[in-house]
């Protein structure tokens, strides 16, 4: 995607290998780690370099004394997986009933491997609320769950009551480092680049009207990037993506 690669200049072979080595070694900061994980999605050279360092270094984990996990740990893991399977089958069942409204959303959710159960429950609950709520007319409604780039945690939800009015709601906590700010962006598939929707305060709901933009569409991309506290100096993101997701039409 041009908007993302544009914000991080391509790396030479040695830079790639240095970055991969320090990532695997563990010496990068939280911010740099996020940046690597973001680059990884598109940079196969970086993926290969990281794998190479993982292969070289992994045998040395054997220097650490093993510690037997408590007897409850496997039960906990097993219960999490059971819960997830139960919620999946009941959601699939529900999705077939109200005219397949939840189908698309669920399809997307199952693609988000590694999402915490809580995030799935929140998203399903919200979708059900939106889709099955009282007195609703069948106008277009959209939902976006913004996840961390590794899809391990949901941080924000975008709800759209109409294609021009959206609200961004926090569903978790996020600590912005000093001197930095979160900036909200969107881009539809056929736009040439992302458009800034302004800075966002962590923990606060933000209402926005998109009057200057084309109507919200299915699959439209939303993301929150970490920028300097006055926002990105350019007309596109310059900092690492913290949360990202695409709009699903309900």
């Amino acid at each position: 995607m041009s908007d993302r690669s544009a914000s991080s200049p391509p790396l030479g072979p040695e830079e790639t290998d240095d970055l991969a080595g320090e990532y695997v070694l563990g010496t990068l900061s939280a911010e740099q780690r996020l940046d690597v994980e973001r680059r990884l999605q598109e940079d196969t050279k970086l993926q290969e370099a990281i794998w190479a360092w993982e292969r070289r270094l992994q045998p040395y984990t054997a220097m650490v004394e093993p510690i037997a996990p408590s007897s409850r740990l496997w039960q906990r893991i097993s219960r999490t997986l059971d819960d997830r399977e139960t919620s999946r089958s009941s959601a699939e069942e529900r999705a077939t009933r109200p005219g397949g409204l939840l189908n698309r959303l669920w399809h997307d959710l199952t693609l988000w491997r590694g999402v915490s159960l809580a995030s799935i429950v929140v998203a399903i609950g919200l979708a059900a609320m939106l889709a099955l709520g009282p007195g609703q007319t069948p106008s277009s409604r959209y939902l976006v769950v913004l996840m961390t780039p590794q899809h391990t945690q949901a941080g924000w939800i975008v709800q759209a009551s109409s294609p021009q009015r959206i609200s961004l709601k926090p569903i978790g906590t996020f600590e912005v480092p000093p001197g930095k700010a979160l900036e909200f962006w969107t881009k539809a598939d056929d736009w040439s680049g992302p458009v800034s929707l302004g800075l966002v305060e962590p923990g606060e709901t933000k209402q926005l009207s998109l009057d200057d933009l084309p109507p919200l569409e299915d699959n439209q991309l939303f993301e929150l990037t970490l920028e300097d506290d006055s926002g990105s100096p350019l007309d596109r993101p310059t900092g690492p993506i913290q949360f990202i997701g695409r709009a699903v039409e309900l």
């Binding site: 984990t61 650490v64 093993p66 510690i67 037997a68 996990p69 740990l73 590694g114 915490s116 391990t152």
Partner: peptide, 29 residues
């Protein structure tokens, strides 16, 4: 691998409880 993984993670995070949470998440992932 559970014991070896827990050893590695405890060494990094320095807390047995947090390390078990991480092993939980790791196996779910």
């Amino acid at each position: 691998e559970g014991s070896r993984l827990l050893g590695v993670v405890v060494r990094i995070v320095g807390d047995r409880g947090i390390a078990e949470d991480i092993i939980h998440d790791a196996f779910v992932n």
